[in-house]
Structures are given as structure tokens and as C-alpha cells.
Design a protein around this nucleic acid. Structure first.
Lengths: 351, 351
DNA sequence: TTGTAAGCGTTATCAC
DNA sequence: GTGATAACGCTTACAA
């Protein structure tokens, strides 16, 4: 724990106080702070001792000013779901823990027509080194262009490659969804419903493609009546459930493009007295807290979101993170999601 | 939208550029930025025009340095649940939107024995004006003392008054829980189970007191067998459910100290074929996303968490938020939680 | 390897 | 009301 001394005058000690105490120039102290190589072990030790003794902590604002750059990175999100944001954030913080960086979190309202302007104001004011864009706003090309324009680095997180590897961390949604659906097929399901995410979302499109891919491989096609639109909200799951489950020939399994809609669909099944998974198998996507809180627990797809946070930081500011940062594995920046089996999937009735 | 000019040299325009363009001294520009009263409307207008024209944005680091204070406030949390953190954060951002403040978010690990040291390092490095502590870490007195010690303002969020009104935003957990339980009693429930939160959490104690209070008012007492320990986790709800629902005389209703445990308990009810709410009423606490995602939707208690975020910011930095900040209502800083009725409560069997 | 001087973009002081 | 000048705490030249 740092010493409690406040330096002369009872204030925070400054680099000058350290320099005076150590009997060196402030530049030498600065060198120690910034880990310059050209220093005698002896002077370094003397300075470090003085720093310790005074409890000196460099003023980040002063450093930022002198460096003509601050040490902030920003996380921009539109609250896709709270757990995702927080897990990602945790990953970022893991990555920057031993650096001088600090994290600014900024919710943005993608519905607002002032969104771009708001972000611009934010970036101009804070001037972070870089920004990390979480889906769905990561899919907004204008936002990326804005960052570019302002000289703010950026990384976009997505369900698929939506930018080059330097600017994009992505998962393999399509493949994993296909895998999940193949599991359903292996169980013997043939009438499989699909609840889609919102129009215009890349993630929604990816998941649909994965779904259709798996079906096609099995020589099947998605019947129009088994297709339900949606918007990633619980109520959309309800509506989809009401449509799908009152069909004269209802599906024996449904893939929902996220957990929340899966929960909605499941509640409809419950109210109709349809047994899950006995009479209806359900798969979700996200592995949100909801997935384990509903009954039966939902089979779903898990994004390696914390890992993506780490990777995003490493991609955004490798030069601030020390040597370990680049040795982080696959340079393509595609991280694998995994299918999580729980209790909401079983063989269809009569198999 | 701000102009795109980068000033002379292609860089960000500075106060000097503005001064030159407006034909005034930089100090005058500074006065305009800081809304000094002593200015001719004419000069002010001239400066504002120059600012607009150059797209000038004051450098916050330089301001921070000159002011000897930065414009950061920090949100410290231990991820009680993601939605809470994000909603609170949103409230804070609502409150500081038109100010110069920025928000730093910092997860802390209350389990770690280095927790205090970590927070100290963070506060010393960033030197925020103030810190907002979310439960459960808000209950840690050492943390508050640390802030005090470092000259960092603080506000603690809690389920009950855990500090004086200047340092505490609280809700009335006890009362609302009592109200919810009175509702159960009015339905005719007499055997009401209780699932507690973790030992050492003030919120858990408050909720228990509210529960017992309502029972006592009705001349009832909590039977030992109807009391289940817990820790706010889903699995604790499972365990409580297994204990409570296999009693020879099981409860007809259970109050769970949070939604997550309520979800666990509900899943046990489902697996045992116990109908909710027909045979078992359940009440949770938090109004988390889970509450609406499970089936049947959970009656629960909602914290005015976003409002608390607003209030917390207003209490922490009223001097940075303009005149509206203090007119925010009840000076005691106690905000009311509300009981949210959904589908998990009904009359006990046979009534 | 270390020190000196100048400057980063802003505000405070104190004259005018 | 407004402006010169000196801070603020640090880094980057460049010199020694």
C-alpha cells in the first residue's frame, strides 16, 4: 500500500517533489515513470524509493496533455443485453489492467436520429485513443467512418466479419447455429421452426443463414408457415409462439434467434400445456442469464464475449498493452462460439 | 453538427486559434467557455461564432490540469446484476448529460483481499471528483473511509440508510417487502416460506425484517422449517425449493429475496408438477429481466434504479450539474421501490 | 546516462 | 470588460 504523505503543502506530491527528494531532475523521474532503458540501476532505485516514500502517482491529465494524447478507450454500446455489455467490459478491463489505460463506457441510443451527432460530440470531447463498438451499433458503417474521420481507432464486434481483421472481432454464428440445428436433425426433428431477429441486423441474417444451411444439407427446406419474424424481444417470442404453436401441424422444435425470444416462446408452450422438451424442443442464442433461469434450462449458443473483450482491447491498442498482447492466438480475430446443451432439447414425440 | 475545420496545421483547433480568429485574448475565450458573466454580448457572440466556425472543442485534459481537478466521476460495482448496473449507469448519464462530466465505470472484485488496494490505486490514478458505490460493496465501510481519506466524494446506494443523507441513496426495501407479504396474507396464505439473501448483506437483512414484520402484524410467525438460507444465486433457489417443497406441509407461498432465487424455486416447482400460482405463489425481488422471462411471470419488487442513478449523481456533484439538480424532490434521498404484480401470485388452494 | 529549456491547452492573477 | 503573464504537471527536444 502506498504511503500517505502528501508532499510539501499537504497536496498531492508532484514529479518535482520526487525529483527533489531523489536529488535528480524531473526528467529523470519522468524516465523512470515511463520505463526508459537509459538509466543506471542506481538512479532508478533512488527515484523509485522517493516515489514510494511520497506515494507519488503521476497525474494522468498532465501526462495526457504533454503526450498530446490521453489514455482512454471507449466502449460504445446500445445495451443489446446487460450481461453481454458487462462481460465484454470485464474482458476489456482484464486486458488493460496493467496498462495506463482507463475505460470510458458510453451507451448510445441507436433509435435517435441524433445518434451520430451524440457520438461525435462524445468522441470530440473525450478524444479516446480508440472506441469499441458492440453489436448492433457495430454494424453501423457511418459510426466506423466517423471514428476514422476523427482519428479515433475503432474495433467492431460482430457475429460475422463486418470489417477487416484490424477492425473487427467476430464470432462464427452461422456455423454454430448450423451445428445446433444439425443436432436437432440428428434427434429426428423434421419440422423445425425458426424465429428470426430484427431486419437489418447482421447477426439475425447470419443466424438465419446457418439455420437454412443445416436444413439444406439435410435436404430440407424451411416451410413458410414455420418461419416467424422477430426483434430479439420477449414479446416477439410470445407472438412467434402463438403463431407457430397453433399451427395444425406445429413444429416439434424451434430455433429462436436469441434467448429472450426463446423464453417468450417457451412461456407460450407452457400456457398451452405443451411439454418442453417432450413435445417441443427449443434452442436459443446468447446464453444470457435467462437461459438458465427459465425452466427447463435452455440449450443455447454462447459467445465468448469476455474473451472478445480481451481480444478487442488487444486489437485496438496493442501498443499500450505490453508484449503479451499480440501473442493472443488467431490473427483472423474470429472467435468460436459454442453450443451449450441444456434441458430444452430432446427427441420429437414418437421417436 | 460541428464544423470540420481542423485549424491551422491540420490539428485540433485550440483556444489560441479561436482567440486569433475572434480577435480577442485567449482568456476571453476561456471566459466564454466557462460562462463568465462579465462579458459584452458582442464579444461573447464573436467568440461563439469563431468557436462554431472552427469546430473548437476544449481539451478536457488541459482544463483538468489548469483547474487542478478533472471532470470524472466513477461508478464502482461488483456486478450485483447486470441490468441493475446498466440502468443505474443510464440514470447517472441522464443526470450528467449536459455537464462537463464523464463517467468511469469500474468493476471491483469484493471477494479479493486486494480489493481495497485495487480501489485505492484506481482512485489515486484517476482522481475522480467522486465515486458512486453500488450494493453490495456500498455496504463496505472501509471503502467509504478510503474515499474520505483520499478526498474523493462518495455516495452509497443501499436498501436502507447506511450512511447520512449526503452519502446515501436508499430504497425502502423493508416496507415494500412487508407490503408484498401483506398481499399474500390478504389472499389467505398462512404458510409462507422465506428464502433469504446472503449473510452479511444489508439488503438481505432488510428484506427479512420486512417479511417478518408483515407476518408479525398478522399475528403470525415464520416457522423454522419454512425458512431457507440463500445467497442470491439461482442454485440457492433450487436448494430452497427442494427443501421447502418436499415438506410434508409445504408452504402455499414463498417470498424469495431476489428474482434469481425465485426462478430457481419456480423451476423446482415445475419439475415437481406443482402449479404456479395455483398451488404455489412466488414473489421475487429486483424486477430483473428474469422476472418477465420466466413462466409464469414473476411478481416482484422494482427498485427505482435509474432514478437512483440520477439522484446519486445529483447528490454527488450538485455543483457541476446546474441549478436543476437540487430541485429533485425528497431531501432524505430515500426513493420508493414498488411492488409489481404479475402472474406468480394467486389465492392458496382451497380458497 | 542525465539535465535544461520549451511547450502541451487551459485557467488564475492581477493589472489596465 | 479585457488582456498579459504565470501557472498546472508532465513530456519532448536537444544539450551536456
Amino acid at each position: 500500500m502506498a504511503a500517505q504523505n502528501k508532499g510539501p503543502g499537504g497536496k498531492q506530491p508532484t514529479i518535482n517533489d520526487v525529483a527533489a527528494l531523489a536529488g535528480v531532475s524531473k526528467k529523470t523521474v519522468s524516465r523512470v515513470i515511463n520505463r526508459s532503458e537509459f538509466l543506471t540501476d542506481k538512479t532508478r532505485a533512488a527515484v523509485e524509493k522517493a516515489i514510494e516514500q511520497l506515494g507519488f502517482v503521476p497525474n494522468p491529465q498532465a501526462r495526457a496533455l504533454a503526450f498530446r494524447r490521453n489514455f482512454l478507450i471507449a466502449l460504445l454500446h446500445d445495451n443489446p443485453n446487460a450481461q453481454t455489455v458487462l462481460n465484454f467490459q470485464r474482458g476489456v478491463l482484464d486486458a488493460i489492467k496493467d496498462s495506463d489505460l482507463a475505460l470510458l463506457v458510453r451507451p448510445v441510443d441507436r433509435g435517435s436520429d441524433k445518434m451520430l451527432e451524440d457520438v461525435r460530440t462524445f468522441l470530440e470531447k473525450q478524444r479516446p485513443i480508440g472506441a469499441m463498438l458492440l453489436p448492433p451499433i457495430s454494424e453501423n458503417d457511418d459510426l466506423a467512418a466517423l471514428c476514422e474521420d476523427l482519428g479515433v481507432r475503432y474495433v467492431r464486434i460482430g457475429s460475422a466479419r463486418i470489417d477487416d481483421a484490424k477492425h473487427c472481432i467476430s464470432s462464427n454464428d452461422r456455423e454454430v447455429v448450423a451445428e445446433a440445428v444439425r443436432g436437432l436433425l440428428a434427434f429426428g426433428h423434421r419440422r423445425i421452426g425458426f424465429v428470426r431477429g430484427p431486419v437489418g441486423f447482421r447477426s439475425a441474417a447470419e443466424r438465419e443463414e446457418g439455420f437454412r444451411e443445416a436444413l439444406a444439407q439435410a435436404g430440407l427446406e424451411l416451410a413458410a408457415e414455420l418461419y416467424a419474424p422477430g426483434n430479439y424481444r420477449y414479446t416477439a417470442g410470445i407472438e412467434a409462439g402463438e403463431a407457430l404453436l397453433s399451427l395444425s401441424a406445429p413444429p416439434t422444435a424451434v430455433f429462436c434467434s436469441n434467448d429472450e425470444m426463446a423464453a417468450g416462446l417457451m412461456s407460450v408452450a407452457h400456457s398451452k400445456g405443451i411439454k418442453v422438451p417432450g413435445e417441443l424442443s427449443i434452442i436459443g442464442f446468447d446464453d444470457s442469464p435467462t437461459a438458465t433461469h427459465i425452466w427447463p434450462a435452455l440449450s443455447t449458443v454462447r459467445w465468448p464475449i469476455r474473451e472478445m473483450g480481451i481480444r478487442a482491447a488487444q486489437t485496438l491498442v496493442p501498443d499500450f498493452l505490453g508484449p503479451g498482447a499480440k501473442a493472443a492466438g488467431d490473427e483472423s480475430n474470429v472467435l468460436a462460439s459454442t453450443f451449450v446443451e441444456r434441458q430444452s432439447v430432446a427427441a420429437p414425440p414418437g421417436r
